[in-house]
């Protein structure tokens, strides 16, 4: 029974840790499927986290916080779009730029506005998204097996967690069952064909990066308003890059993305759980090894040693109409 409880707890923290990855990963999915590489997920998430925490603490409303997080994140996504779609700049360079601008300005503005060394004021309970307790969760808590699974794993998360997991089937539906999704995928593979069909490549790609901005905004809001009670400087701590790794790991597919993020979240949860205590058989594993594992796995996958990850064909290439 003890082992079972540990397992449930670990899976519970797996879910909590994988939510920001999942949102950012799906965000990257929209953009990259439309042919715009985005290594600025990290920056957009960070800016979203700061904006949502700042707005939530000033206006005392979690919803205004979420809205502001999305707004700022979309604004940065549009900068990325402006550089890489309208001006056909290098998408990698633009993403790097956005990461730096976000990293610097969140600290500077946070310090100037709140005077707490780059933090935002701690959010009161009403200014955060609270855990939603499903009906009957408390009643069956003591029932063996089903009780903990229902009341710990399924119930008791915040709204944003459910949004993140619902975004997976929704993204699948949008990409593979709607006209917009078909065009979005087409523009990432062969923009010239889409252009020939009389559809604006630029406007399609802009809509894709706006989707990206919305999702990274929610991811940031989750970090600042659910996982923590306020913004801490550099709180994304590389999660945007892990999400990028997960996206590649998932071969740019939404359902795979969920499993990849859960896997990376699980590795994180295990690393926190073990913290130096020895594993059976293997012995003591350094924490750093567990932390590096998502990156190592991605490199191995990219190298084609476990299946092949083939990116969208037109990814990273600005579209120039032939004249």
């Amino acid at each position: 029974m003890d082992f079972f409880n540990v397992a449930v707890q670990t899976l519970d923290s797996t879910i909590r840790l994988s939510v920001p990855l999942l949102l950012a990963c799906l965000a990257g999915l929209y953009s990259e499927r439309s042919g715009i590489f985005d290594i600025g997920l990290e920056g957009k998430m960070l800016a979203g986290a700061f904006a949502s925490a700042a707005a939530a603490s000033v206006f005392h409303s979690a919803w205004i916080g979420l809205g502001m997080g999305i707004l700022i994140s979309v604004a940065l996504a549009l900068v990325h779009g402006f550089a890489s779609i309208t001006h056909r700049g290098n998408q990698i360079v633009s993403g790097v730029a956005i990461n730096f601008v976000a990293a610097g300005s969140t600290i500077i503005l946070g310090q100037a506005w709140f005077q707490q060394g780059g933090r935002t004021p701690a959010l009161a309970p009403g200014e955060r998204f609270e855990a939603i307790v499903f009906p009957g969760a408390d009643a069956i808590r003591d029932v063996p097996i089903i009780g903990p699974i229902y009341s710990e794993l399924i119930s008791g998360h915040s709204l944003l967690v459910y949004i993140a997991f619902l975004a997976v089937p929704f993204t699948w539906w949008v990409l593979f069952r709607t006209r917009f999704g078909l065009r979005l995928r087409a523009v990432g593979e062969n923009p010239a064909a889409v252009d020939t069909a009389g559809i604006s490549v630029e406007w399609l790609r802009y809509r894709a990066v706006i989707c990206t901005g919305i999702l990274t905004g929610i991811a940031g809001a989750y970090l600042a308003m659910v996982q923590n009670a306020g913004f801490v400087k550099d709180m994304t701590a590389g999660k945007g890059f892990i999400a990028l790794a997960a996206l590649i790991f998932a071969k740019w597919k939404p359902v795979n993305a969920m499993f990849a993020c859960l896997l990376f979240g699980f590795l994180d949860a295990i690393a926190i759980r073990l913290q130096g205590s020895p594993l059976p058989v293997i012995g003591k594993v350094p924490v750093q090894f567990m932390q590096a594992l998502p990156y190592v796995l991605t490199v191995v996958l990219l190298a084609g040693f476990i299946g092949k990850a083939i990116p969208p064909r037109a990814g990273g290439v600005p579209y120039v109409k032939e004249r």
Partner: peptide, 25 residues
């Protein structure tokens, strides 16, 4: 005191943005 050294990170980002990604603007 309001302008810590993180200001450089912003400038760095802006330089990368305008001299790199938006060089043709």
């Amino acid at each position: 005191p309001n302008i810590s050294r993180d200001m450089i990170v912003i400038i760095q980002g802006l330089v990368i943005l305008f001299a790199g990604a938006l060089e043709h603007m």
